[in-house]
Amino acid sequence: MIVFRTAPYGTIYAFEGLENVLIMGAYDQDISVLFIDDGIYAIKDGMNTEGTGIKNFSPTFRALEAYDIEKVYVDKESLEARGLSVDDLVIEPEIIDASQVAQMMEDQKNFFIF
């Protein structure tokens, strides 16, 4: 499982995390992707990075499906805490709660947080 927990642009963690997801997707593995805490900001819609000079990578998240990564989740509480709903995101992850996150972690062999 790959977890996005960091906002984009302020640091490179989310972008390089995405690069890692796309590579992992090329392997025949059971991969899931989860957005929690500030990681949600990486998939917020309406980004325009022109003024910063940094490439806007949020559209790339739409390619997850093309990489056969279909298990994509977002944490309910993290969304609500930031005043966002799935309508504000560039993709449509399945909404889960903290206890489901905990259960998924126990079920996964590897857990990478970016």
Binding site: N20, M24, A26, Y27, Q29, K109, N110
Partner: peptide, 9 residues
């Protein structure tokens, strides 16, 4: 980067 995936496996 694939070598990270292979390591995870």
């Amino acid at each position: 980067l694939g070598m990270l995936t292979e390591l995870a496996i």
